[in-house]
Design a protein around this nucleic acid. Structure first.
Length: 306
DNA sequence: GGTAGACCTGGACGC
DNA sequence: GCGTCCAGGTCTACC
Protein backbone atom coordinates (compact mmCIF):
# COMPACT_ATOMS: atom_id res chain seq x y z
CA UNK A 1 0.00 0.00 0.00
CA UNK A 2 1.29 3.41 -0.96
CA UNK A 3 0.25 6.88 0.06
CA UNK A 4 1.49 10.29 -1.07
CA UNK A 5 1.55 13.01 1.57
CA UNK A 6 1.98 16.67 0.70
CA UNK A 7 4.24 18.95 2.74
CA UNK A 8 3.97 22.68 3.24
CA UNK A 9 6.84 24.19 1.19
CA UNK A 10 9.71 24.59 1.50
CA UNK A 11 10.31 20.99 2.44
CA UNK A 12 13.25 18.61 2.17
CA UNK A 13 12.97 15.05 3.49
CA UNK A 14 16.76 14.81 3.73
CA UNK A 15 16.89 17.95 5.86
CA UNK A 16 14.29 16.61 8.30
CA UNK A 17 15.82 13.15 8.49
CA UNK A 18 19.25 14.60 9.18
CA UNK A 19 18.03 17.35 11.49
CA UNK A 20 19.42 15.40 14.47
CA UNK A 21 20.20 11.82 15.44
CA UNK A 22 16.69 10.41 15.95
CA UNK A 23 16.88 8.39 12.72
CA UNK A 24 19.73 6.38 14.26
CA UNK A 25 17.53 5.19 17.12
CA UNK A 26 15.44 2.00 16.88
CA UNK A 27 12.86 1.36 15.57
CA UNK A 28 14.06 3.74 12.86
CA UNK A 29 16.46 2.37 10.31
CA UNK A 30 18.18 4.71 7.92
CA UNK A 31 18.81 7.05 6.41
CA UNK A 32 19.06 5.18 3.11
CA UNK A 33 20.89 6.40 0.00
CA UNK A 34 17.97 8.71 -0.81
CA UNK A 35 17.69 9.98 2.77
CA UNK A 36 14.50 8.05 3.37
CA UNK A 37 13.97 5.78 6.35
CA UNK A 38 12.11 2.73 7.59
CA UNK A 39 10.10 2.55 10.78
CA UNK A 40 8.21 -0.17 12.66
CA UNK A 41 4.99 0.90 14.33
CA UNK A 42 2.51 -0.87 16.60
CA UNK A 43 -0.89 0.50 15.62
CA UNK A 44 -3.64 1.10 18.13
CA UNK A 45 -5.37 -1.97 16.68
CA UNK A 46 -2.41 -4.02 17.94
CA UNK A 47 -1.12 -4.83 14.45
CA UNK A 48 2.57 -4.23 13.86
CA UNK A 49 3.61 -2.81 10.51
CA UNK A 50 6.76 -1.56 8.85
CA UNK A 51 6.71 1.35 6.45
CA UNK A 52 9.23 3.19 4.32
CA UNK A 53 9.25 6.95 3.83
CA UNK A 54 10.88 8.34 0.70
CA UNK A 55 11.01 11.68 -1.06
CA UNK A 56 8.30 12.69 -3.52
CA UNK A 57 7.75 15.77 -5.67
CA UNK A 58 5.73 17.80 -3.18
CA UNK A 59 6.17 15.81 0.00
CA UNK A 60 6.78 12.18 0.82
CA UNK A 61 5.83 8.71 -0.38
CA UNK A 62 4.92 6.20 2.33
CA UNK A 63 4.98 2.53 1.42
CA UNK A 64 4.02 -0.52 3.44
CA UNK A 65 3.58 -4.11 2.33
CA UNK A 66 0.71 -4.50 4.78
CA UNK A 67 -2.86 -4.02 3.57
CA UNK A 68 -4.35 -1.43 5.89
CA UNK A 69 -7.91 -0.76 6.91
CA UNK A 70 -9.23 2.74 6.41
CA UNK A 71 -8.67 3.52 10.09
CA UNK A 72 -5.12 2.17 10.00
CA UNK A 73 -4.42 4.15 6.83
CA UNK A 74 -5.50 7.31 8.63
CA UNK A 75 -3.39 6.41 11.66
CA UNK A 76 -0.25 5.94 9.54
CA UNK A 77 -0.92 9.16 7.65
CA UNK A 78 -1.30 11.07 10.92
CA UNK A 79 1.81 9.43 12.37
CA UNK A 80 4.01 10.35 9.40
CA UNK A 81 2.58 13.87 9.24
CA UNK A 82 3.54 14.35 12.90
CA UNK A 83 6.94 12.66 12.58
CA UNK A 84 8.00 14.93 9.72
CA UNK A 85 6.01 18.02 10.66
CA UNK A 86 4.61 18.09 7.13
CA UNK A 87 2.10 20.83 7.91
CA UNK A 88 4.48 23.09 9.87
CA UNK A 89 5.07 26.66 8.77
CA UNK A 90 8.47 28.31 9.29
CA UNK A 91 7.95 31.44 7.20
CA UNK A 92 8.22 33.72 10.28
CA UNK A 93 11.48 32.03 11.30
CA UNK A 94 12.88 32.49 7.81
CA UNK A 95 11.88 36.16 7.83
CA UNK A 96 13.66 36.61 11.17
CA UNK A 97 16.86 34.99 9.90
CA UNK A 98 17.35 37.01 6.72
CA UNK A 99 19.58 39.55 8.44
CA UNK A 100 21.79 36.91 10.07
CA UNK A 101 24.62 35.46 7.91
CA UNK A 102 25.05 32.56 10.33
CA UNK A 103 21.49 31.48 9.51
CA UNK A 104 21.45 32.47 5.84
CA UNK A 105 21.20 28.82 4.81
CA UNK A 106 18.06 27.84 6.72
CA UNK A 107 15.40 28.85 4.20
CA UNK A 108 17.30 27.55 1.20
CA UNK A 109 17.79 24.20 2.93
CA UNK A 110 14.24 24.18 4.34
CA UNK A 111 15.56 23.80 7.88
CA UNK A 112 13.26 24.06 10.86
CA UNK A 113 11.50 20.72 11.10
CA UNK A 114 12.97 18.18 13.51
CA UNK A 115 12.40 14.47 13.00
CA UNK A 116 10.14 13.00 15.69
CA UNK A 117 9.10 9.53 16.72
CA UNK A 118 5.51 8.47 16.19
CA UNK A 119 4.38 9.10 19.77
CA UNK A 120 5.29 11.69 22.34
CA UNK A 121 5.79 8.81 24.77
CA UNK A 122 8.57 7.44 22.55
CA UNK A 123 10.10 10.91 22.23
CA UNK A 124 10.12 11.43 26.00
CA UNK A 125 11.65 8.03 26.71
CA UNK A 126 14.34 8.55 24.09
CA UNK A 127 15.10 12.02 25.42
CA UNK A 128 15.62 10.53 28.90
CA UNK A 129 17.98 8.06 27.25
CA UNK A 130 20.05 10.95 25.87
CA UNK A 131 20.77 12.39 29.31
CA UNK A 132 24.00 11.83 31.17
CA UNK A 133 25.43 9.41 28.64
CA UNK A 134 27.15 9.27 25.28
CA UNK A 135 25.29 9.08 21.97
CA UNK A 136 26.52 5.51 21.62
CA UNK A 137 24.92 4.69 24.95
CA UNK A 138 21.65 6.26 23.85
CA UNK A 139 21.61 4.17 20.67
CA UNK A 140 22.35 0.99 22.61
CA UNK A 141 19.65 1.61 25.22
CA UNK A 142 17.01 2.40 22.58
CA UNK A 143 17.90 -0.74 20.64
CA UNK A 144 17.82 -2.94 23.74
CA UNK A 145 14.49 -1.44 24.77
CA UNK A 146 12.98 -2.22 21.37
CA UNK A 147 14.50 -5.71 21.18
CA UNK A 148 13.42 -6.63 24.70
CA UNK A 149 9.94 -5.16 24.92
CA UNK A 150 8.85 -4.14 21.41
CA UNK A 151 6.14 -6.07 19.56
CA UNK A 152 7.62 -8.07 16.63
CA UNK A 153 6.77 -7.55 13.00
CA UNK A 154 4.82 -10.70 11.97
CA UNK A 155 6.72 -11.25 8.70
CA UNK A 156 10.12 -10.41 10.19
CA UNK A 157 10.19 -10.95 13.97
CA UNK A 158 13.73 -9.60 14.19
CA UNK A 159 12.25 -6.17 13.61
CA UNK A 160 10.21 -4.70 16.42
CA UNK A 161 8.19 -1.60 17.20
CA UNK A 162 8.99 0.76 20.03
CA UNK A 163 7.27 -0.67 23.13
CA UNK A 164 3.91 0.87 23.97
CA UNK A 165 3.41 2.34 27.45
CA UNK A 166 1.39 -0.75 28.40
CA UNK A 167 4.21 -3.10 27.38
CA UNK A 168 6.80 -1.10 29.30
CA UNK A 169 4.49 -0.68 32.28
CA UNK A 170 4.38 -4.45 32.56
CA UNK A 171 8.19 -4.67 32.52
CA UNK A 172 10.07 -5.41 35.70
CA UNK A 173 12.61 -2.96 37.01
CA UNK A 174 15.39 -5.53 37.19
CA UNK A 175 15.16 -6.31 33.46
CA UNK A 176 15.16 -2.63 32.60
CA UNK A 177 18.22 -2.04 34.76
CA UNK A 178 20.28 -5.14 34.00
CA UNK A 179 19.19 -6.42 30.58
CA UNK A 180 18.35 -3.17 28.85
CA UNK A 181 21.00 -1.50 31.01
CA UNK A 182 19.13 1.73 31.52
CA UNK A 183 20.88 2.02 34.87
CA UNK A 184 19.46 4.68 37.17
CA UNK A 185 17.11 5.76 34.34
CA UNK A 186 15.12 2.51 34.62
CA UNK A 187 12.76 3.67 37.40
CA UNK A 188 12.14 6.93 35.51
CA UNK A 189 11.11 5.09 32.32
CA UNK A 190 9.04 2.57 34.26
CA UNK A 191 7.22 5.26 36.21
CA UNK A 192 6.49 7.20 33.02
CA UNK A 193 5.12 4.08 31.31
CA UNK A 194 3.00 3.24 34.32
CA UNK A 195 1.58 6.75 34.55
CA UNK A 196 0.70 6.72 30.84
CA UNK A 197 -0.63 3.16 30.81
CA UNK A 198 -2.15 3.42 34.25
CA UNK A 199 -0.32 0.40 35.53
CA UNK A 200 -0.18 -0.15 39.26
CA UNK A 201 1.92 -2.60 41.13
CA UNK A 202 -0.20 -4.75 43.40
CA UNK A 203 1.61 -7.32 45.47
CA UNK A 204 4.17 -7.94 42.76
CA UNK A 205 1.62 -8.32 39.98
CA UNK A 206 1.12 -5.62 37.38
CA UNK A 207 -2.38 -4.48 36.60
CA UNK A 208 -2.96 -2.22 33.64
CA UNK A 209 -5.85 0.20 33.71
CA UNK A 210 -6.55 3.54 32.02
CA UNK A 211 -3.61 5.98 32.14
CA UNK A 212 -3.71 9.12 34.28
CA UNK A 213 -1.16 10.86 32.06
CA UNK A 214 -2.30 11.54 28.49
CA UNK A 215 1.03 12.46 26.90
CA UNK A 216 -0.28 12.28 23.35
CA UNK A 217 -2.81 15.00 24.16
CA UNK A 218 0.14 17.31 24.81
CA UNK A 219 1.06 17.13 21.11
CA UNK A 220 -1.91 19.25 20.13
CA UNK A 221 -2.58 21.15 23.34
CA UNK A 222 -2.46 24.91 22.80
CA UNK A 223 -0.49 25.92 25.87
CA UNK A 224 2.05 28.62 26.69
CA UNK A 225 5.60 27.31 26.59
CA UNK A 226 6.07 27.82 30.32
CA UNK A 227 3.08 25.69 31.22
CA UNK A 228 4.20 22.93 28.86
CA UNK A 229 7.70 23.16 30.36
CA UNK A 230 6.30 22.84 33.88
CA UNK A 231 4.32 19.78 32.80
CA UNK A 232 7.42 18.20 31.29
CA UNK A 233 9.46 18.93 34.43
CA UNK A 234 6.99 16.89 36.48
CA UNK A 235 8.20 13.79 34.63
CA UNK A 236 10.97 12.03 36.55
CA UNK A 237 14.18 12.07 34.54
CA UNK A 238 13.20 15.20 32.63
CA UNK A 239 15.20 18.23 33.74
CA UNK A 240 15.88 21.60 32.10
CA UNK A 241 17.86 20.19 29.17
CA UNK A 242 15.41 17.37 28.41
CA UNK A 243 12.42 19.70 28.75
CA UNK A 244 13.94 22.21 26.33
CA UNK A 245 14.71 19.43 23.85
CA UNK A 246 11.18 18.09 24.06
CA UNK A 247 9.72 21.59 23.72
CA UNK A 248 11.68 21.91 20.47
CA UNK A 249 10.19 18.64 19.23
CA UNK A 250 6.74 19.96 20.16
CA UNK A 251 7.21 23.15 18.16
CA UNK A 252 8.11 25.51 21.02
CA UNK A 253 11.43 27.13 20.23
CA UNK A 254 11.72 29.89 22.83
CA UNK A 255 14.37 28.13 24.90
CA UNK A 256 17.77 26.58 24.16
CA UNK A 257 18.48 22.96 25.13
CA UNK A 258 21.64 23.71 27.09
CA UNK A 259 23.97 20.75 27.49
CA UNK A 260 27.73 20.32 27.63
CA UNK A 261 27.90 20.46 23.83
CA UNK A 262 26.26 23.89 23.87
CA UNK A 263 29.01 25.11 26.22
CA UNK A 264 31.63 23.95 23.74
CA UNK A 265 29.93 25.57 20.74
CA UNK A 266 29.32 28.92 22.44
CA UNK A 267 32.77 28.98 23.99
CA UNK A 268 34.40 28.47 20.60
CA UNK A 269 32.07 30.93 18.85
CA UNK A 270 32.22 33.92 21.19
CA UNK A 271 34.51 33.35 24.19
CA UNK A 272 37.86 32.38 22.67
CA UNK A 273 37.46 28.82 23.97
CA UNK A 274 37.25 29.97 27.57
CA UNK A 275 34.87 28.02 29.84
CA UNK A 276 31.24 29.22 29.71
CA UNK A 277 28.07 28.29 31.57
CA UNK A 278 24.32 28.29 31.04
CA UNK A 279 24.12 32.08 31.40
CA UNK A 280 26.49 32.66 28.46
CA UNK A 281 24.58 30.23 26.22
CA UNK A 282 21.26 31.83 27.01
CA UNK A 283 22.68 35.32 26.60
CA UNK A 284 24.01 34.42 23.14
CA UNK A 285 20.48 33.71 21.88
CA UNK A 286 18.47 36.04 24.10
CA UNK A 287 17.51 38.28 21.17
CA UNK A 288 15.97 35.44 19.16
CA UNK A 289 12.73 35.37 21.17
CA UNK A 290 10.39 32.61 20.01
CA UNK A 291 13.08 31.27 17.67
CA UNK A 292 15.93 30.83 20.18
CA UNK A 293 15.96 27.06 19.95
CA UNK A 294 15.96 26.92 16.16
CA UNK A 295 18.58 29.70 15.90
CA UNK A 296 20.83 27.70 18.22
CA UNK A 297 20.14 24.39 16.50
CA UNK A 298 20.79 25.54 12.94
CA UNK A 299 23.52 28.14 13.68
CA UNK A 300 26.52 27.84 11.37
CA UNK A 301 28.95 27.13 14.22
CA UNK A 302 32.60 28.03 13.86
CA UNK A 303 33.43 24.92 15.87
CA UNK A 304 32.12 22.76 13.01
CA UNK A 305 34.30 24.55 10.48
CA UNK A 306 37.65 23.95 12.15
C1' DG B 1 16.70 29.30 45.60
C1' DG B 2 21.33 27.50 45.28
C1' DT B 3 24.73 23.75 45.88
C1' DA B 4 26.99 19.18 46.62
C1' DG B 5 26.98 14.50 46.05
C1' DA B 6 25.05 10.30 44.16
C1' DC B 7 23.37 7.88 40.27
C1' DC B 8 25.14 4.36 35.93
C1' DT B 9 27.57 3.32 31.83
C1' DG B 10 31.12 3.42 28.46
C1' DG B 11 35.36 5.12 26.81
C1' DA B 12 40.08 6.65 27.54
C1' DC B 13 44.12 5.92 29.78
C1' DG B 14 47.93 3.89 32.48
C1' DC B 15 49.90 -0.15 34.30
C1' DG C 1 43.28 -7.74 30.97
C1' DC C 2 42.45 -4.92 34.89
C1' DG C 3 41.75 -0.81 37.62
C1' DT C 4 41.01 4.12 37.72
C1' DC C 5 39.25 8.33 36.14
C1' DC C 6 36.07 11.15 33.72
C1' DA C 7 32.03 12.81 30.99
C1' DG C 8 27.26 13.11 30.54
C1' DG C 9 22.00 15.58 33.09
C1' DT C 10 18.92 14.85 36.87
C1' DC C 11 17.45 13.93 41.53
C1' DT C 12 17.59 14.51 46.42
C1' DA C 13 19.11 16.27 50.63
C1' DC C 14 20.80 20.00 52.79
C1' DC C 15 21.81 24.83 53.79
Amino acid sequence: MEMMLAARPPFSLATVVNSHGWVQLAPFTGPDAENGFDYVLELTSGRVIAFHVGAAASGVRVFTETALTAAEHTEVEQAVTWMLGLDMDFSDFYAATRHEPKLAHVEEQAQGRLLRSATLFENVVKTILTTNTTWGGTKRMALELVNTFGAPLPDDPQRRAFPTPARLAAADLDTLQKTVRLGYRAPYVLELAQRVAGATEVAGATQVAGGELDLEEWKTAVLPTNELRQRLLTLKGVGPYAAASLLMLMGHYDSVPVDSWAFKLVSYEWYDQQPVGRAEVEKAFADWGQWKGLAYWFWDWAYHQQ
